[in-house]
Structures are given as structure tokens and as C-alpha cells.
Design a protein around this nucleic acid. Structure first.
Lengths: 194, 194
DNA sequence: AATTAATAAATGAATATTCATTAAAGGAGA
DNA sequence: TCTCCTTTAATGAATATTCATTTATTAATT
């Protein structure tokens, strides 16, 4: 088969960026394919070349952003022997991602808290998270932190972080470095083995 | 002025119930006034008697459910001298609400994570929470827990609870009493003064 | 020439909201 | 008690608009 005209990934990217921005601004019910297309300087029909339909587009966006987040958090990270330091690194990398990519963060949260997050979709997102969970599992095996299930760990550590990031992003309260440090130390005090 | 025909609060209630259920099932973008009206056995026009418009309806719903939640949590609660016990009570009342009213919980979360949550709306919701925050403030004044800001406290204590409730509600993982107990003890270990 | 990306335009269904009308409830007067 | 009158709750139908998606066509690339 001869080579054919290839897809323009810049165009797809423009659609994704417009979709994320508009959805964060107007919500799922306030946004339409037409609005996204207009914002991305693209025909509505073009969107259907890259995505099966609207729901498929949103799901692909969610999974892609979630993967991007995990990649960012684990970039250049090599776990060492100091489990508290490892833990602290993961903690702050999460924060940096929320801080640097507020749009990605807001979209992920809006999607994850809507019924659009189907079971299969949630499971795929969870699978992306496995490498991070493996590091935590390592600390547990070494006896550095209390042996609790992944779900509990996730809730105890990352949920507070998420909550603070949302507060910060909303502009209603500014979260300072010393706040984060305080939260980190409290969480660590609860988790570490006595 | 003569008395007039009074509003049928049952009708309003039916609209609210239908709205919450359908929105949890289909999301903000999947639901319409017509669908809600049909589900509530009411004319679409009737909805506009009780609510200014769609957005107003959603906001009223959010604030009402949030107030209901705080009322539930504080029902019959009289704080005593044992700060850990007070704290534990608030913790479990939150859980019981999430457990008993999963629809209210899901709606609150979906709304709070969407751009529909405007600043004024968030502030009103926060004001409802003041009585709970006052109890926590009391424990801090007494020196029972570390002196941290309300925002940090909220993030550390209730965010993990929320996260576990979501996991439980999604059906992906069942949260058992011993899980909750474990989480409570870990949070308390981090917060209590040494 | 073959293949397909990209689009403008079109489609029918669904949307939020309004409007003209009816139903119900109670007060005033007899 | 009966009859009218006022007021407003309630509604079905209609409105203009917007929606997601498809189709027919053009443009670009090999």
C-alpha cells in the first residue's frame, strides 16, 4: 500500500487544548462540538476524524491527561534507601503538577467526579498509577510505613493534596510552601512506623 | 390582599429528587429540563415556577443538600471534654451521611468539582460548615490537636474520608469498618499534640 | 492516479425557555 | 350556602436556537 496523507497531530492537539480549556470554563453541559471546533480553528467534522464521538473524545482526553500526570511525577525519579525522602518527592511532584498544569488538573477532577467515569475508564486510570503504588509498596515492605491497603494509602496521602490544590486553584485561598510542609509532616507522622 | 393558591412543596420536592437522580446517572450534559420534568411527572413549565432557570435550580439543589448534610452531621451532637471522642463523632457522622445518602453525596461532589461552583456559591457552602469548624477550633484552643489553619485541617481530615466514600460508592472497592477505624487512628496520630 | 485529510453545509433531533390557557382555591357579598 | 371574582399554580404546545453527527465535496500528498 502506498503511503497516504498523514494525520495532522497539531490539529488534534489544538482540539484537545480547546476542549480542556472550554470545559473547565463552561462545564460539560456548557460546551459543544461546535464551540470546541471554533475555538480550535477547525471544522466540527474534523473532530470526528480524530475521535469516534463526543464521549470518546472526553474519555481519551481524561486518560491522556492522567498518563501525562504520572509521567510528570515519575520523571527522573529514582527511589533510594531513604523512604521518607522518596515519599516526600512523590508528594511534591504531585503538587508541582497541579501547580504547573491547573487546566489538566481541573479537567481530570471534573471528569473523575462525573458519571462519565465508567468502570473501565477508572480501571485504566488506576493502572497508570501502578508505578507510583509500587514505590509505596516498597516502603511498606521495608517496614518504613504502616502496612495499610493501597486504597487507604491513596486516600490518606493524595486526597489532602488534591483538596489543597483545588482550594489554591480556585483562588479562594493561597497555599504557601510552609503549609505544604506542615501537611507533609503531619501525614508522615501518621503513616510512619513508631 | 386575599390569600392565594399556595405552592405545592411536594411538587418541588419531586423535581429535586428527579434532578439529583438523573444528574448522578447521566451527568450535567446528559440531562435536560424535559427529562427531569418527565421523570417528576410535571410540566417543563412548572419547573420555571420554582426555579429561575436551570443553573439556578442546580445551585439551589447544591446549597440545600450541603445544608442537609451539615444538619445531619450535627444532629444531637454535644461536644464534651474528650476531644478525640468529639473528633471521632464528626468523622463517623460524615461517613454515615455519605453512606446513607449516596445520591446527595454524589451530586454535591459532581457539582463542587464543576465550574458551576461559582465563588459566591462556594462561600455560602463554606458558611454552612462553620459550626463544624468551630468544634475543631475548640479542640485547637484546648491544645488537643496541632494548631493548623482550617483549610489544612479540612484537607487532612475530610478529604481522605471523601475519597474513601467515593471509592465505596463506585463499587470498585468496599470499605469496611476496620478500614475506617484504621484511617481514623492514623489521622489522629498525625494531628494530636505529642 | 490513488488515497485520505479536511471541510462547509446540511440534517433531524433535542435544547432551554416562553406563552396562552386552564384549574384551583379562597374571600366578598348576598 | 351559593355565586362571582381575583389570584396564581400548573400545564401543553410552540418558539427559536443549538446540538451531535453525516454527507458530499475539495485539497493535499505520495
Amino acid at each position: 500500500m502506498v503511503d497516504m496523507r498523514s494525520l495532522d497531530l497539531d490539529k488534534r492537539d489544538a482540539v484537545c487544548k480547546s476542549a480542556v480549556r472550554l470545559i473547565n470554563q463552561l462545564g460539560f453541559d456548557g460546551v459543544s462540538i461546535a464551540k470546541i471546533a471554533k475555538d480550535a480553528h477547525v471544522s466540527p467534522a474534523t473532530i470526528y476524524i480524530y475521535f469516534e464521538n463526543k464521549e470518546d473524545m472526553l474519555k481519551q482526553l481524561y486518560l491522556q491527561l492522567k498518563q501525562d500526570m504520572v509521567d510528570f511525577i515519575l520523571k527522573d525519579f529514582k527511589p533510594g534507601q531513604d523512604h521518607k525522602a522518596n515519599f516526600k518527592h512523590l508528594f511534591y511532584q504531585h503538587w508541582f503538577f497541579f501547580y504547573q498544569y491547573p487546566d489538566s488538573f481541573a479537567f481530570i477532577e471534573q471528569f473523575a467526579n462525573s458519571p462519565l467515569l465508567t468502570c473501565s475508564c477508572a480501571e485504566m486510570g488506576f493502572r497508570f498509577y501502578q508505578p507510583i503504588m509500587a514505590i509505596i509498596h516498597g516502603a511498606q515492605q521495608a517496614g518504613a510505613v504502616k502496612p495499610i491497603s493501597q486504597a487507604l494509602y491513596n486516600a490518606l496521602v493524595f486526597a489532602p493534596l488534591l483538596q489543597l490544590a483545588k482550594l489554591h486553584a480556585s483562588g479562594r485561598q493561597s497555599i504557601q510552601p510552609q503549609d505544604l510542609e506542615q501537611v507533609f509532616e503531619i501525614i508522615w507522622a501518621g503513616l510512619k512506623t513508631d
